[in-house]
């Protein structure tokens, strides 16, 4: 079990993610903000000798542009993280299509691989939904892939896990139940966070202070 909390790169937010284990669900409709969070978390939670696993489920045609290598490398250098070991121990598992996440073979291989993991990030919950039209008779419910995601955490001593949800709906009940904390972000002129669930804090809003060099492109434009 971890003894330190989940680091997000934003001190105000870190105060709320300072739990030694468990699943965090981050909800936000702004993909740019979520991408920034993912890049920060990948770097800031690097621990020597541990793997980080990013379950990068997104449309195949967007795969080449979805990981901002330049930003990740720059962030790692700024944070003083040893670059080569970090790049070699941060793994990306991509699903080929929405069918893949219902494929037991896919999860068997992922679970076989997922040992000695310090952090697992699921990007994103929405990609686990199979559109009704393409649902076959053997289509599995959403709780199946979410259960597998939870299994990865459990087999790694309840390591830190983050599930990203880009929808503006309430959290899926099973995920809400599994999550230690649920935080919803609103991005406008700044970033406001709302605690929807937390083991130690009551439901409340707070504003995130964004460091100037980490401003979103839309604010710079």
């Amino acid at each position: 079990m971890n003894t330190t909390g989940l680091k997000t790169g934003f001190p105000t937010l870190d105060a709320w993610t300072d739990l030694s284990s468990g699943i965090f669900t981050f909800q936000c409709t702004d993909a740019e903000w979520m991408g920034l969070l993912v890049d920060q978390m990948l770097v800031r939670n690097y621990v020597e000798g541990k793997k980080t696993l990013l379950l990068h489920f997104l449309d195949y045609h967007e795969r080449y542009w979805a990981l901002d290598f330049d930003f990740i490398i720059k962030t790692a250098k700024n944070a003083g993280v040893p670059l080569r070991p970090f790049m070699q121990n941060t793994y990306v598992q991509r699903a080929f299509s929405r069918d893949t996440v219902e494929n037991p073979e896919f999860w068997r291989r992922t679970l076989d691989f997922s040992h000695n993991v310090g952090l697992v990030i699921l990007d994103s919950v929405g990609e686990l939904y199979t559109p009704d039209k393409s649902k076959g008779p053997n289509s599995k419910p959403l709780s199946y892939p979410l259960g597998k995601f939870r299994q990865i955490c459990q087999q790694n001593d309840n390591c830190h896990a983050v599930a990203l949800d880009y929808s503006d709906w309430s959290a899926y009940p099973f995920l809400g139940e599994c999550s230690s904390a649920i935080i919803r972000f609103e991005v406008d002129l700044g970033v406001t966070a709302q605690i929807l669930k937390h083991p130690c804090k009551k439901q409340e809003n707070f504003e995130l202070q964004i460091v100037p060099q980490e401003r979103l492109n839309k604010w710079l434009a």
Binding site: R84, M87, Y91, V92, D99
Partner: peptide, 13 residues
């Protein structure tokens, strides 16, 4: 189709 992609490190990607 059953083939799934292997997990890859950032270095490999």
């Amino acid at each position: 189709k059953k083939m799934t992609e292997q997990p890859k490190s950032l270095q490999q990607l």
